[in-house]
Design a protein around this nucleic acid. Sequence first.
DNA 1: TTTAGCACTTGAATCAATCGAGTGCTAACC
DNA 2: GGTTAGCACTCGATTGATTCAAGTGCTAAA
Lengths: 377, 377
Amino acid sequence: MEAHESVLSERKKQILKAIVDAHVAGGEPVGSKVLMQQIACSSATIRNEMAELEEMGYLEQPHTSAGRVPSEMGYRFYVDSLVEHYAMTAREIAQINQALKAKMSELDQILTTASTLASNLTNYTGFALKPRSRALSVSRFEAIYIAPGQFVLVMVADDGSVKTRNVKLDLNCDSASVARLAATLNRYMTGRLADEITLPTMVAMEEAMAEDGALISPVIKIIYETMNESDRGELKVTGVDRLLEYPEYSDASQLKGLLGALEQKNDLMEMISTAAERDPHGVVIGSEASVKEMNNSTVVFKTIVKDGKPIGAIGVIGPLRMDYARVLSTLDGLSGNIADLLGEGAAQLGDGGVTVTDQESEDDNNGRQKGQNGNRG
Amino acid sequence: MEAHESVLSERKKQILKAIVDAHVAGGEPVGSKVLMQQIACSSATIRNEMAELEEMGYLEQPHTSAGRVPSEMGYRFYVDSLVEHYAMTAREIAQINQALKAKMSELDQILTTASTLASNLTNYTGFALKPRSRALSVSRFEAIYIAPGQFVLVMVADDGSVKTRNVKLDLNCDSASVARLAATLNRYMTGRLADEITLPTMVAMEEAMAEDGALISPVIKIIYETMNESDRGELKVTGVDRLLEYPEYSDASQLKGLLGALEQKNDLMEMISTAAERDPHGVVIGSEASVKEMNNSTVVFKTIVKDGKPIGAIGVIGPLRMDYARVLSTLDGLSGNIADLLGEGAAQLGDGGVTVTDQESEDDNNGRQKGQNGNRG
DNA sequence: TTTAGCACTTGAATCAATCGAGTGCTAACC
DNA sequence: GGTTAGCACTCGATTGATTCAAGTGCTAAA
């Protein structure tokens, strides 16, 4: 592959690079004229060079009267020898960091899964919607020593949900420090929103921890993040690709428009909450939707109710000619299952009656009594 | 809305329903001839009825010489009065149950997020790949009593990772039972794969628990599920819709084919592992791919390395004319961030040097020392 | 070796002609 | 009165010819 470089003159490389760049940017075959701006010679010269590059296999002509397009070999050479380094912006880097750190609550996971299921089972695009939920305060702390500098923090929230965090510090804390930490947290932090912790409280806690005072600050941050992470309202959309096989969306622009409308989560939430009032089925057909881009589509949804309050919704979006029977019963089934999982189905217990939730488990998930049966056999 | 029913004759309802069903199934306007099979009268009669239904607003004609299509009002009536109940198959119900119960490991979450980020930042379709990983055994158990019948189970796995489960049973276990449970688990279960637990061991554990013997069986199941959940190899694909705006994929069938190929996860894994050997950049251009459907697309990926071993990959898929510079650096940045999160980046510690992971945290995540800095301020 | 100029090629756009599916309407029928 | 057969009619889709324009290859001059 390095042989390329010795064969291609500097100017050929320039031209090849310019062609790749232009074609990547514009998508059209690139002609000799546009290249004149970047290469310091006439179009005829460039044409000659391009003819040679084509002969060598780096370029292709879709047809005689079109410009040139890089061949696969051309792209390969570009990637191997011509790509310039692109430096990510600080903004992009920050975005990566933030997004990767964010955890998914269990409700989020369930809703995502439900959206995927709705899509899979109906062959339309699925979505799941979660309204904002309030921040929680912690009513009880426990801390379990795991290893030097490492412990598990267990938080029982004011709604009865339990969250755990595996914490590692590079501070030297032992079993005793961890126990003291739990005691201190229980004394100063219980019943308070993490927002409400004032500097004096922090200082008091650090004093109470004596030589382990350094633990407080990072731990408070962790608690803050944990108790607030459930606070994002969100819309998940899955299975967009399924709509591709419906001729209604065969022109990509149509679908693109619909998806763009979906990005306006507020509109969708608004639509669903109003539709839920007047329509028992949760079916919004075409122009019944307030959003123009949805006027050629149908939205079918079902709210998920927990303790009598709607805590989210799942649904599907597809063409007007939707298989309503199937969609309606699928959503019914799904929402029932979710309600069960979230603890509405307290009655249906099997052998042992076990409920298991992972640590994130009861994020956004208040007042649960019994959940799904943990036994699978 | 109920007024409809009194206005429409039984035959009109039949015809409307038949039209909706046929149109939903076939996508084409439906003519009077095809309806003859379902309605017991001649095409002329049906035409008369259709003309009336159109007059009333339930049907529409795309043009004079086409068949009829339901109007929005027609669909509305269908949904309100004509849909037949569709009963889900046992298979579908099982699928729902299983999928909703499955938890996502942290690695899964990170990879999903990474895939989304790759897609967002590059404007191509992103993917993330995770090979199967081995099951873990537990080297230490802890149990924290929360409430009657409820406790948090903390498991330190043989690779040093920590997992926690919030367990609720409808058995009457108190603080002492929970403590005894931990002791018993530590005595009989440490160092073993959950698969290896034999019936005699179970019996011995139940005996050791005396009157709380009933705890053992459900708890073993929980441990089993927890330690094996990381075992699924998987491919996540996100941002399919981004490809819609590239003319290369403007005919939906092209894109559909590509996506179909992506479903063959094994092919992709194969491709990536072979490509990773011979190509330092991880760029597969067009026909370099072994899969035919990808011959008009480029796949760029980057393996994620942890402790010297590849534990997954992230990448993007898009047209040949891809913005390689941007894609390559984005994937570099992402994979670096992921490696840090997973504990490779032990060196880069900031103030406090805090590592936080939630319970699922170190799923598939062995030998970590220090991770990313937990402080955000 | 580069460049200006010109004939040439060829997909895309435009337009007319043809085709056919399905209708509306009329008249006969039960 | 409701139903049905028959037929003229409509109108989008398909096909084919024509034009248009972008971009080339080649030749001859610099």
